[in-house]
Amino acid sequence: MSVSESRSVLPSSPQRRSLLAAAGLSMLGAPWVARSQSSTLRIGATIADTGVERFNGQGLLYGAKAYFDALNRAGGIHGRQIELLKADDEFNAGKAKDNALKFAADASVLALIHPQGTRQTAEIMKAVRDLPIVGPNTGATALHKSGAKNVFWVRTNYDQEVERLVKLADNLGLKRFGLVYPNDPFGQSVLESFQAALARRKIEAVGIASTPGTASLEVDAAARQLAKLPVQVLIMSLAGTTPAFYQAYRAAGGVSMCYGLSVSGTAANLAQLAKGNDRPFFSVIVPSPNAQKFEIVRQYRRDMKAAGFESESLVSLEGYVDAYVLAEGLRRAGPRVDRDSLLAGLESLSNFDIGGVRLNFDKHVREGNSYTDTVTIDASGRLIS
């Protein structure tokens, strides 16, 4: 099926669902026909659908799809359905950039939602400047502060996340900190945030170790190194490899309290981490998926169930929130939405309540969220606020 043919498929049809489930680089390889208007509101997503980081990528996509599916069932936006186009970048920065450029070259694609990864987002931001980008899945502070006008940050930056974890430990009287991070742009960003948070308290780290990269499962050396040190609190700046490191650290005799970042909180990670006798704490940039005092969480849980997604996680809730923000920008852009009017719509989201969490964007502000909290998990992998 060609791309032009796919546009005529009704959003609720089995054929379309099959197409979206299978769509990836093969879809992007077909001829792309530029259109200023389409019968659907077309949104691109480049994510890791394969490899170690696939659980993060799929979680983001499932959350966004759950929201858009619910919106489409309710009639869409200004009478038009939202079409979510997926491209698998395999967590490769070059492929992520290529995917984004292909989306940007098609004038009927109005925005890119939550590109995944620090290096991937950096490459996309350099290459794509006229396509709105909503909710990149990275908290790299330098990227957040870059001033890119087409990028709207829905997650908080790593300075805020790490500060939350360090403050929690400091308030408990714990002063001997350690860090494990991947030796890549994601890890380097968190390392800087970690060092800054300790410096504000005049604390020196007891131990710092690195793994080869975000997707690398070579975690044993770092685990053994840190297990030998008198660390009280170990911050695991890892994503999909968090369970592998955590298990290796405990096997090597490491006894410190362990904290993880929000990108660690996939359903698959939580299920693995729940198997131990003790369990990590996590920083979060959205409420816990179990915190039903938040309207956004209640809505998310309903829509995930309706979409047929059984597992709930911090990552899929983040994807859901990204979709919520993007959809409101589309709504405010008006019936004849294009990329410019969408930018204006997103800029108008000042003091915007998404069901218990408020976001603030304007013509000059692109970091819309300041929400952070900490959670842990129970023996079943369920998050506890």
Results as ranks from 00 to 15, higher is better:
residue 143 L to V: 01
residue 84 L to M: 09
residue 10 L to R: 13
residue 23 A to N: 08
residue 48 A to W: 01
residue 204 E to A: 15
residue 142 A to P: 06
residue 83 E to Q: 11
residue 274 A to V: 09
residue 161 E to P: 02
residue 148 A to M: 08
residue 106 D to W: 02
residue 369 N to L: 03
residue 179 L to H: 06
residue 159 D to E: 11
residue 77 I to M: 09
residue 74 A to W: 01
residue 146 S to H: 08
residue 335 P to E: 14
residue 180 V to D: 04
residue 7 R to D: 15
residue 31 P to E: 13
residue 157 N to F: 05
residue 264 S to P: 08
residue 335 P to N: 13
residue 249 Y to G: 03
residue 242 T to G: 05
residue 122 A to D: 09
residue 28 L to T: 00
residue 41 L to I: 12
residue 137 N to T: 08
residue 298 R to C: 09
residue 285 I to L: 00
residue 321 V to I: 15
residue 347 E to M: 09
residue 237 S to T: 01
residue 143 L to G: 05
residue 173 G to E: 05
residue 382 R to F: 06
residue 191 L to E: 14
residue 378 D to I: 10
residue 5 E to D: 15
residue 126 K to D: 14
residue 109 V to A: 06
residue 7 R to N: 15
residue 37 Q to L: 11
residue 139 G to F: 08
residue 374 T to N: 00
residue 261 L to F: 08
residue 264 S to T: 07
residue 385 S to T: 11
residue 342 L to Q: 07
residue 377 I to E: 02
residue 135 G to W: 09
residue 309 F to L: 05
residue 65 K to E: 13
residue 68 F to G: 07
residue 65 K to N: 13
residue 318 E to D: 14
residue 373 D to W: 00
residue 140 A to Y: 01
residue 170 D to V: 05
residue 265 G to E: 09
residue 208 I to K: 04
residue 111 A to R: 04
residue 274 A to Q: 01
residue 235 I to P: 04
residue 125 M to R: 10
residue 183 N to M: 04
residue 135 G to I: 11
residue 95 K to P: 02
residue 32 W to R: 01
residue 120 Q to A: 13
residue 142 A to L: 10
residue 349 L to I: 10
residue 85 L to N: 07
residue 228 K to P: 03
residue 369 N to D: 09
residue 139 G to K: 07
residue 154 V to H: 07
residue 251 A to I: 06
residue 170 D to M: 01
residue 299 Q to H: 03
residue 142 A to E: 14
residue 66 A to P: 03
residue 205 A to Y: 06
residue 169 A to W: 05
residue 253 G to D: 11
residue 105 A to Y: 00
residue 111 A to Y: 10
residue 184 D to A: 04
residue 233 V to G: 00
residue 173 G to K: 03
residue 130 D to R: 14
residue 306 A to M: 12
residue 23 A to M: 13
residue 168 L to K: 06
residue 320 Y to E: 07
residue 26 S to T: 12
residue 42 R to I: 08
